[in-house]
Design a protein around this nucleic acid. Structure first.
Lengths: 141, 141
DNA sequence: TCTTGACTTGGACTCTGTCCATCGTAGGAT
DNA sequence: ATCCTACGATGGACAGAGTCCAAGTCAAGA
């Protein structure tokens, strides 16, 4: 993601230390962090960074298509740095952990034209739900 | 949905006026209301009904499988009264309109065991996105 | 180096949803 | 028909996620 900064600069982004730090955090692991987690990690690198800036920056990255929002029903939105490789998500219904998965076949194919109601369907987002190994073995509440 | 109340009574639900009203509201239209909208409509029928009761009742209906939660990224959860016929959703990326659709095939089949990471996968939720006929013809912002 | 407008800050605010102590009542028992 | 009691309703406080805004800061072009 080091070239992310280059791409952004090319798009006229003013390069601030805050934005550099947010990009660095997203680059760190390929997990799907919440905005709050991004903020916590960013604070370690730049103690005075504010929550509002993290939200702003994440929002901008999303609208530029550099990262993806993944909504985890009822919980905080998560941010997926892996926006350039199409994939789907597997979510633990208990703890909210998210993994990237690559199903076979084209999910769009499952939707017959008769079921499209005149829509110009351009993508299908699939969320698989279940229990992750540790939640499946741990006693549920 | 008039038999909904019968089914619930059969499951040992205590039948209160509040619960009746919530069921009645959900029965009204087959749109996907938010909890707050359900509360607003319920108040018209039973002015003293509280928000907490609406949330409780919706939560119970969800866990009984009578209605479904549909998460609308970043916005309030919506409740889908059409839970007895499995279906997916087709969402207009421009205006947000939601339609129920019935894809062919089992969406779970697309996820190979090698891609399940030990999860006990129990369901797949598919959201098709595109432009509805009117947004497709109208100039976009 | 100067200038300026884009960016950041932090705290207040909104929106969704949950919790809890207390009160009310549906519906079985008598 | 009346009584009992556990289940359900209430509403206000609380919490988490995210937005807004006025004021201050600073990146980068001139």
């Amino acid at each position: 993601m080091s070239d992310l900064l280059e791409r952004l600069r090319g798009r006229g982004w003013r390069m601030t230390s805050q934005r550099r730090v947010v990009a660095q955090v997203l680059d760190g692991d390929h997990v799907h962090l919440t905005a709050d987690e991004v903020h916590t990690l960013a604070v370690r690198l730049l103690p005075e960074i504010s929550r509002a800036t993290v939200y702003n920056t994440l929002g901008e990255l999303v609208s530029l298509g550099e990262i993806m929002e993944v909504s985890a029903a009822g919980r905080a939105m998560r941010y997926d740095p892996n926006a350039h490789h199409p994939h789907q998500h597997l979510v633990c219904s208990d703890c909210g952990t998210i993994r990237d998965v690559h199903p076979t076949g084209d999910p769009l194919a499952g939707l017959p034209v008769a079921e499209r109601f005149g829509f110009t369907v351009s993508e299908a987002e699939v969320t698989y739900r279940g229990l992750c190994p540790s939640c499946a073995s741990a006693p549920q509440v």
